[in-house]
Amino acid sequence: MADQSGSAGGTTGMPAPGGPGYGMHPPAGYGYPGGAPLPSGKATASMVLGIVGLLLIPIIPPIIALCLGISARRMADRGEGGGRGMATAGMVMGIVGIAFAALGVVVATVQALSVL
């Protein structure tokens, strides 16, 4: 006779044979396979340098951000890491930063020549 605790033979603490049990694992094939890959360091560095290039130092960091963004995006496309969106953001900010730096050089040159 089974008591209300679900044990077959009294108070032994063992579940009834064929019962669900707490330590059972779901069958293979269920659940998530492990999630998306983490962003690579290159993608993160590209985005950070892109932000730094837009806000603080307008010449060298955008160039590095563009190069790292291209490299990280190629790695993500080959499946060697994640962070494709971060790499793209770093590339875009690198391009914009290079354009602003070039515009600043042109404006400074025109102003310097107009003084003469």
Rank of each mutant, 00 (worst) to 15 (best):
P33K: 03
G85F: 06
G97Y: 06
G81R: 03
V110A: 13
K42G: 14
P61N: 02
G34K: 07
H25M: 15
F100C: 11
G53H: 07
M86V: 00
L66D: 00
V115P: 03
T44N: 11
G104C: 05
V52T: 05
G69R: 01
R73N: 12
T88V: 09
S5F: 14
D77P: 00
P15H: 02
I51K: 12
M14E: 15
V96H: 02
A28W: 04
S71I: 07
Q111W: 08
G82K: 03
G94A: 01
L68H: 02
G97D: 06
Y30I: 12
M93I: 00
L49E: 01
D3T: 12
L103M: 11
V96K: 04
G69P: 00
Q4M: 03
G29W: 05
G19C: 10
T12N: 14
I60M: 03
I70T: 04
G6Y: 10
S46C: 09
E80I: 07
P33Q: 04
R78I: 08
R73S: 12
G85A: 14
L103H: 05
A72E: 08
M1W: 04
K42W: 05
A28V: 04
G21L: 13
L68K: 00
G53S: 09
V96G: 01
I59E: 02
S7R: 01
V105R: 05
A45L: 12
A43C: 13
M47F: 08
S5M: 13
P62K: 14
I70P: 01
A72Y: 04
D77A: 13
L116T: 15
G69T: 04
A99Y: 10
A45V: 06
L54P: 01
L68C: 03
Q4I: 07
Q111P: 01
A2Y: 08
A76H: 02
L56A: 13
G83N: 05
P27V: 07
V106F: 12
G10M: 02
C67S: 02
I95V: 15
I59D: 02
R73W: 12
G18V: 12
V52G: 01
S46A: 15
I51N: 03
G35H: 09
A2W: 05
T44P: 02
I95L: 15
V48D: 01
I64L: 10
M91Y: 06
G94I: 00
D3I: 10
L55P: 00
R74H: 15
A43H: 09
G31D: 06
L38E: 08
T44K: 14
P17S: 11
D77K: 09
M93E: 01
L56C: 09
L56E: 04
A16K: 09
G9P: 02
S5A: 14
G34W: 11
G50C: 08
A102F: 14
M24A: 11
G41I: 09
G85R: 14
L55Q: 10
G41Q: 15
G104A: 02
A108P: 10
P15I: 06
V107I: 11
I57Y: 14
M47Y: 11
I63E: 02
P27Y: 05
V110S: 05
L55K: 06
G9S: 12
V48N: 04
P27T: 05
D77L: 07
L103T: 08
I59C: 01
P33E: 03
F100K: 07
A36Y: 15
G35F: 06
E80L: 15
G19V: 00
P17G: 04
A89D: 09
P37G: 06
